[in-house]
Amino acid sequence: MSPETMSIFPPKVAARFDALVEKYPVRRSALVPMLLYAQDAIGYLSDAVISEVASRIGITELDVRNVATYYSMLRFKPAGKFNVQVCTNISCMLRGAYDVYERFQEELGIGHKGVTADGIFSLEEVECIGACCWAPAIQVNYDFHDDLTPDGVSEILDRYRNKVRDKENNA
């Protein structure tokens, strides 16, 4: 992408992308990190995001989509401010992950890939978050919570609701 081309990304993110493609001997190797940074900046992988990332790397939009659809942490529609991912893979399942997941559904009033009406939370069931030793576990954005029980769900949700309130009160 040429410097005079408009970017949909904030200048810091665009500069990070430029640095990434220079870092790797093969530009395509920057794809997954770029998609993660793009998702953090925009909220999801929109058509515009996919187009710009493809252009920056020099690959087709189809190539970007083919890679992006492989990873469960990448999404193609907006998620809540706090995306709750409940692992239900074997280790977590055996230690009560489905009970934890059901409690999140009840408390949030949404199901898999749902977003609360206020846009604060989204919920999804995922295969593995790599915390098998501390099962059952969840990930909220980039924060891990482990060794959970259904009784701990309200406290976790309240913690994130308070973050939103604190930010609004300090604005």
Rank of each mutant, 00 (worst) to 15 (best):
S122V: 08
F9K: 02
G130F: 09
I42Y: 01
G43C: 13
V64M: 07
V153N: 06
L31Q: 05
E22K: 15
R161D: 05
V67T: 13
K81H: 07
L123W: 02
N89I: 13
L148H: 09
F17Q: 12
V164C: 12
F17K: 05
V53Q: 06
V140G: 02
S29I: 07
F76Q: 06
A97T: 07
Q85R: 15
P11N: 10
R165T: 15
P3K: 12
E125A: 13
A19L: 09
F9A: 03
C87M: 01
E61G: 15
L74I: 04
S46Q: 12
R56W: 05
A54L: 05
G152T: 11
A48H: 08
M93R: 14
E155L: 03
V164R: 05
A117R: 12
A19G: 11
D118V: 02
E125P: 02
G111E: 07
G43Y: 02
Y71E: 04
K113M: 12
N141K: 07
V100T: 07
G152D: 11
Y71D: 07
E127G: 13
M73V: 14
F121V: 08
R161S: 11
E106I: 10
E125S: 11
L148Y: 02
E52I: 09
K23Y: 13
F9S: 02
W134P: 01
F144M: 14
H112R: 04
P10F: 09
A14M: 12
D118R: 04
K23L: 13
Q39L: 00
A48N: 06
H112V: 02
S154C: 03
R65N: 00
L62R: 15
V26C: 00
R65I: 03
V67F: 00
D47H: 07
D63H: 08
I42N: 04
E106T: 14
P11Y: 13
N169I: 13
G58M: 11
I110F: 02
A131G: 05
Q139E: 14
P136V: 09
R103K: 15
D151N: 11
G111N: 08
V115K: 11
A171Y: 06
V86R: 01
C87F: 02
R165H: 12
N89S: 04
K23T: 11
S122G: 07
P150A: 10
S2E: 14
S7H: 07
C128T: 10
N141A: 05
M34F: 04
P3D: 13
H112K: 08
R161F: 10
N162E: 15
K113Y: 10
D147A: 07
V140L: 11
L20K: 03
E107H: 00
G130T: 09
N141D: 15
D147M: 10
W134T: 13
P11T: 06
S72M: 12
P78R: 14
